[in-house]
Amino acid sequence: MHPYDYADTTFAAYEPGDARPPRRNRRPVAIALGALLALILVPVAVDRFATARVESRTAQAFQAGMHTPSAPEVHVRGFPVLTQLAAGTLRHVDITAHDIPASDTTGPLPVSELSLRLHELKRSDDDTEALARSAEATALLSYADVSDALGLEISRGSRPDQVRASVLLPTGDDITVATTVSVLSGNRIAFKDFQVTGGLLPDVGRVALSRVFERPIQLRNIPQGLHLRSVTATESGLTARLSGESVTFRSDDGSRGDAVEGDSSYGNA
Rank of each mutant, 00 (worst) to 15 (best):
G65P: 08
A45P: 00
N268Q: 14
P22Y: 07
V76L: 06
T232N: 14
R256M: 03
P223H: 15
G65L: 13
F11K: 12
E73M: 11
G205Q: 10
V44L: 14
L168I: 06
L152H: 03
R164F: 00
T10Q: 05
R26E: 12
T51K: 15
R215W: 06
P69C: 10
V260G: 14
G88D: 01
V29W: 07
A144G: 00
G257R: 04
P43S: 04
I217A: 08
G151Y: 02
F194M: 04
P101D: 06
V163I: 03
T83H: 03
L121V: 03
E73A: 14
L184T: 04
L141E: 05
K122I: 06
D94N: 10
H67L: 11
R215C: 07
F11G: 13
M1K: 12
A190Y: 13
H98P: 02
V54F: 10
K122W: 00
D127Q: 10
L82R: 04
P223F: 05
G244C: 05
V93Q: 02
R77H: 07
Q63C: 10
V167F: 09
R77A: 09
A64S: 12
P72V: 01
A35Y: 00
P72W: 05
A59Q: 08
V163A: 00
G172L: 06
S210P: 08
R159Q: 05
V247G: 11
V46G: 01
G225Y: 03
H67K: 13
D253H: 13
D94L: 07
R20M: 03
P160I: 01
D8M: 07
G186N: 06
V111P: 06
P108S: 02
G262Y: 10
S182L: 12
R23V: 01
P202N: 14
D5K: 05
D127H: 11
P202C: 12
T83R: 04
I154P: 05
S265Q: 13
Q60K: 15
L118S: 07
T128D: 08
A13E: 14
E136M: 03
A102N: 09
A240S: 15
R57M: 11
V247R: 11
D148F: 00
I189D: 00
D99G: 02
E129W: 09
Q224D: 15
E15Y: 05
G225P: 10
R188D: 00
H227F: 13
A130E: 02
Q162C: 00
T197P: 12
H227E: 15
V204A: 15
G186L: 08
V183F: 13
S251R: 11
N268G: 02
L118P: 08
E55K: 14
